[in-house]
Design a binder for these strands. Structure first.
Lengths: 248, 248
DNA sequence: GTCCACTCTTGATCTGGGTCAAGGAGATCA
DNA sequence: TGATCTCCTTGACCCAGATCAAGAGTGGAC
């Protein structure tokens, strides 16, 4: 998941948000070289599944560009998105053989992968890599818990506003497309994907977005291009007291 | 959060589920002694707050006995429980100065704490402690994501059944109170706490528990003492396809 | 062009769970 | 033997969001 630390890292390294530094910003050159040897890139088209829940997973890696989602599905088809993977976010779990969630590319996606076994052995030899992964995992845990509040207690309108704030903030940090006070960005998700993230139906998502537009909280150009004239207004709609600490 | 690994650990060490081994089962004796030097116990009564969200947190630790909850609260009073801390579960975050959630003792609670600064420096010197914490954190992350599905997509009845399965399974692992095929345990939470965990109101929790009782899925003796005659029936009600991987 | 597929919007209606309200069942204390 | 408090149950009613249904853009293929 996205957070301030990984954003900072991704800004350092434009070509590849990882350059192994998202994995470990403290690595020395020889360690980076070792990582270099076991890394490879994988490219996915929008809509492609990166890995299915339950599949054998013999790599770990992180997102270079594009967006992927983590989803869980019940046997009757109900699905819940449990994570949004943005550039520099880490995927995979050292110490586990199979994937726990479906990972799907929402947009065209480039991933930087490391074969799991050598990555793990490197981890035992290079303590600060484990520490770095621990920090990242704790950030993700916080994000997941933040999202539990959204799912459990917020209204549909608040949920939409929460999601828009997250995307807006992430986009502002990465692209710096601010002019005046307004934030402008493109929604990287369909209404259905937003619904799966928010525990809503796509109709409700559509209705609430329309309502926010009607009330002037956001402006829409087409279906995906969003302008937020007043970010604090949006945060207010999201019901977030604190401005900090929230991310995807 | 509870999981199979930490359960196994807690079974090894009856007196104190940690004995530092929940922190690291691989520690050598001299490392254990170092931990011994910086450890201390704290005792809380049922209902007491261990720490408030935003407070300075200068320790990490884990639960020895009793149950605590992690909750988030919005300024209008809506609250969402984001974690249930059972014996051997870890609390606190290396590298962060303030608590992110309210931690409240639900029952009388004994915690084994370590002062944060020395614990952190020990962590950098003892790589497998960081790895152990990483494993535990990844387990918690999985649990949080599992819970996102519960919060986002399950019905009230399924939510109750999910929570009961978790508690039943945890209790079965710890206390081994199985006779015949039935599981028997006491609910460690009030209806209100269950509601906060499940994103429901306490009235709905009460109604759904009554419904499950009426339908023979569970039996109740008093308000808290539960018998599950057929665990697979309960799991079925919870809508869980897979039996594994679920915990609090 | 004009199909077709996909995504999105909007309306009408229904319903699960929230809200409000009135007790009940145990505890603890005097 | 109540008095009171906390926790829980149950009923009546209501509403936010689900469901069902009917289009409206939009864009690619031919």
């Amino acid at each position: 998941m996205l957070n301030e630390r990984s954003l900072a890292v991704s800004q350092q390294c434009a070509e590849c948000p990882i350059r192994h530094r998202a994995v470990c910003a403290r690595c020395e050159n020889d360690e980076l070289e070792q990582l270099e040897e076991i890394k490879y890139y994988r490219r996915f088209e929008a809509g492609q599944t990166v890995i299915w829940s339950g599949d054998r997973m013999d790599f770990v890696g992180s997102v270079v560009s594009g967006i992927a989602t983590l989803t869980q599905t019940m046997e009757d088809g109900r699905t819940q998105m449990v994570g949004l993977l943005l550039p520099s976010d880490f995927v995979g779990r050292p110490g586990r053989a199979t994937a726990a969630y479906d990972v799907v590319a929402t947009t065209d996606l480039l991933m930087c992968c490391f074969r799991k076994a050598p990555f793990e052995s490197m981890m035992t030899r290079t303590p600060h890599i484990a520490q770095r992964l621990l920090e990242m995992t704790l950030d993700e845990l916080d994000a997941a818990r933040e999202w539990m509040l959204v799912l459990g207690r917020k209204t549909a309108r608040e949920k939409i506003a929460s999601l828009l704030s997250i995307i807006a903030r992430r986009d502002a940090s990465i692209n710096m497309r601010q002019t005046s006070g307004a934030l402008v960005f493109d929604l990287p998700l369909t209404r259905e994907a937003m619904a799966d993230y928010l525990g809503l139906t796509l109709e409700t998502v559509s209705r609430q977005i329309s309502a926010l537009r009607k009330d002037g909280v956001i402006q829409l150009e087409g279906k995906r291009h969003v302008t937020v004239p007043d970010m604090s207004r949006l945060l207010d709609e999201a019901g977030d007291d604190s401005d900090g600490g929230l991310f995807a």
